[in-house]
Write a protein that binds this DNA or RNA. Structure first.
Length: 476
RNA sequence: GCUCCCAUCGUCUAACGGUUAGGACGCGGCCCUCUCAAGGCCGUAAUACGGGUUCGAUUCCCGUUGGGAGCGCCA
C-alpha cells in the first residue's frame, strides 16, 4: 500500500508562511497570498508565519519592511511567528551548503557574471534556452584547487540531475512534471558568500517546519528545482499550492500602470480592510454563488480545492461596490472613528463627535468609500461657499421669497426635530404648488454648498437652528 | 526560441458527462424618490477553434490559436 504524499505530509497542525521580499510596498497580489495562508492557518488551528526574504542586499530596504508590516497590520492579518529575516540566518544556510559540499552535491564555479551574461545572450540570439554549460563542473580536482589557492572568486552551484524527471504534486494545478534536463545547475551561493533565493526558501521552509507552501504561480517553474534541493538535503516535501496570478485589465501582470497596487493606497482611498480582503478572497476562489463573506466565514469556508486555476483580472469597480456594501453594514460608531483622519486631511480641526456620528448615519448608504463619506459630512464642520454657478441657478427671485418663509418658520419651530422640519417643507409644497425638489434643492445648496447630500431634513436637524438659519440667510 | 501553466458573459465565477449554461460587478430600462445613493423588478451578454471518445460533451483526450509565467550571482 503506497501512502500518498499529501497523507505523509499532513501533520496535525499545519504551519504556513507568507514570505515577501522587502523591495516595495505590500501589493494586492502579495496580500491575497498572505490572506490565503492566514485563512488556512486559522481554519486548521495551525500557525501563520511571516518571513522577510531579504537576501538581496541591494534592493531590500527598511522602508519596504515597514511598508509590508503596515499593510499586514492594516489588513489585520496577524501572524503567529516572526517576522523572521533571512539575513539573520546566514549561518544556517552556510551549514547546509557545507553539508552539500561535503557530499559532493554542489561545486564551486569560477565563471564570471560577465562571461555568463555573454553566453546567455548568445544562446538567446541562437534561439536556445539559456542554460549553464557546466564549464566548472568539468574542471578536474587539481584545477579547482589551484584556482581556489590563487584566490580566484567563486560561487557555489547545485549539481542537478541530468536525466529523469521531477514532478510537483500541486494542490491547485495538479501534477506538473518537468524533465530534469530542462533544469541547469543553479547558483545557491553568490560570489560574495550570500545564499540565493531558491536555496534559502528550501532551507527555511524545512527548518521552520512549513507544511504547506502557498504562493503565486510565478513560482511554479522554480518548484522542481526546489524539490531537487529538498531531495539533495534529504528533507521531506511540503504540500505545494500555486495560486494563479492577478492581472490588470489588459491581461498583463498587475502593475502601477493599472492604478493603485499598494494595499496602503487603498487605505488612503478610503477602503475598509475587510472589504479588500473579501474582494481578494473572491478573486481566485469561490464558494457557490456567495459574494459577501465575514472574516469568520472566510476562515470556515476557504479551500484550496475551490481555488481557480487560471489567472484573474483585478476589477476595481467590483471592489468599489463591495466596499460600499461594507460601509453600509458597518457600525456608525466605527465609521465615525475611521472617518476622522479623512476629515483632518481636509483641514478640519474641531470635530463634534456627536454631530459626526449623526452625519455618518445619514450618509452611510450613499457612499462607497471613506473619502466620499468625508465629502458627505465635511460641511457640518466648516463654512460652505457654493460655486457661483450654483448660486445663480438656485438663488433666484423665485426662490428667495420661499427661503425667507423657510427661515421664518424654522425660526419659530419647536421642537427642533425631523418631523416638524419636514412639515415646514411639506406645507410650503402645498402653498406654492411647487415640487419638493424645487424647494429643498436651494436649501441643500445653502447648507452644504453642493447639490448632492443626505436628506435635507436630517441635515437641518443635525446642523441645528442657529447654523441652519445663518447659512440660508446668506442667500435671501 | 525553449519549458511550464491556463482558456465559460467585458470582468470575477457556478454548473456528479444530461441545466432554458446559474450568480455577482458593470451596463441599459422601469419602480421608489427632496438631490445622490440604497433597494425592488426586468433586460444585456459566455462555453476560443478543430478533431476525437460517448446515446449525450462547458465537463474527458489530442491538436491549433490565444494569454500568462519561468529560462538572473532577483525574489
Amino acid at each position: 500500500m503506497i501512502i500518498s504524499d499529501s497523507k505523509m505530509n499532513s501533520t496535525p497542525k499545519p504551519r504556513l508562511r507568507f514570505a515577501p521580499s522587502p523591495t516595495g510596498h505590500l501589493h494586492i497580489g502579495g496580500a491575497r497570498t498572505a490572506l490565503y495562508n492566514y485563512l488556512l492557518a486559522r481554519q486548521t488551528g495551525g500557525t501563520f508565519i511571516l518571513r522577510i526574504e531579504d537576501t538581496d542586499l541591494e534592493r531590500s530596504t527598511p522602508e519596504s519592511i515597514q511598508a509590508i508590516l503596515n499593510g499586514m497590520n492594516w489588513l489585520k492579518l496577524k501572524w503567529d511567528e516572526g517576522p523572521f529575516f533571512q539575513t539573520k540566518r546566514f549561518d544556517l544556510y552556510q551549514q547546509h551548503i557545507d553539508k552539500l559540499l561535503k557530499e559532493g552535491k554542489v561545486y564551486p564555479c569560477f565563471c564570471t557574471a560577465e562571461e555568463l551574461d555573454r553566453k546567455r545572450k548568445q544562446a538567446q540570439s541562437e534561439k536556445r534556452k539559456p542554460m549553464y554549460d557546466r564549464t566548472c563542473f568539468n574542471l578536474i580536482k587539481e584545477e579547482v584547487r589551484q584556482k581556489i589557492d590563487a584566490g580566484q572568486p567563486y560561487c557555489i552551484r547545485f549539481k542537478s540531475p541530468d536525466s529523469g524527471e521531477t514532478v510537483v504534486h500541486d494542490v491547485i494545478k495538479g501534477d506538473v512534471v518537468v524533465a530534469n534536463k530542462e533544469l541547469d545547475d543553479l547558483i545557491i551561493r553568490r560570489t560574495d558568500g550570500s545564499p540565493t533565493y531558491n536555496f534559502t526558501v528550501v532551507v527555511d521552509d524545512v527548518t521552520m517546519a512549513i507544511t504547506h507552501v502557498i504562493r503565486g504561480d510565478d513560482h511554479l517553474n522554480n518548484t522542481p528545482r526546489q524539490i531537487q534541493l529538498y531531495e539533495a538535503l534529504g528533507y521531506p516535501l511540503p504540500i505545494f499550492a500555486h495560486v494563479p496570478m492577478i492581472l490588470g485589465s489588459d491581461r498583463q501582470r498587475l502593475s502601477k500602470r493599472h492604478g493603485a497596487t499598494s494595499v496602503i493606497a487603498y487605505k488612503e482611498m478610503g477602503y475598509l480592510p475587510d472589504a479588500l480582503l473579501n474582494y481578494l478572497a473572491r478573486l481566485g476562489w469561490s464558494y457557490k454563488d456567495q459574494e459577501e463573506f465575514t472574516r469568520p466565514e472566510l476562515i470556515e469556508k476557504f479551500s484550496l480545492k475551490s481555488c481557480s486555476v487560471s489567472a484573474g483580472v483585478f476589477n476595481p469597480e467590483k471592489l468599489l461596490w463591495l466596499n460600499g456594501v461594507y460601509i453600509r453594514k458597518a457600525k456608525p460608531d466605527d465609521l465615525t472613528t475611521l472617518i476622522i483622519p479623512f476629515l483632518e486631511k481636509k483641514g478640519i480641526q474641531h470635530i463634534d463627535k456627536a454631530v459626526l456620528l449623526e452625519g455618518v448615519k445619514i450618509s452611510q448608504e450613499k457612499v462607497k468609500t471613506l473619502v466620499e463619506m468625508a465629502e458627505m459630512v465635511d460641511f457640518f464642520f466648516m463654512e460652505v461657499e457654493p460655486d457661483e454657478k450654483l448660486k445663480v441657478k438656485f438663488f433666484t427671485d423665485e426662490t428667495r421669497p420661499i427661503l425667507k418663509k423657510i427661515i421664518d418658520r424654522l425660526n419659530a419651530l419647536d421642537p427642533w426635530a425631523h418631523d416638524p422640519i419636514a412639515a415646514v417643507f411639506n406645507h410650503l409644497v402645498v402653498e406654492t404648488a411647487l415640487g419638493l425638489g424645487k424647494i429643498a434643492q436651494p436649501v441643500r445648496v445653502a447648507l452644504t454648498g453642493r447639490t448632492v447630500s443626505a436628506g435635507v431634513f436630517e441635515i437641518i436637524r443635525i446642523l441645528g437652528k442657529e447654523k441652519t438659519l445663518e447659512r440660508i440667510k446668506k442667500f435671501v
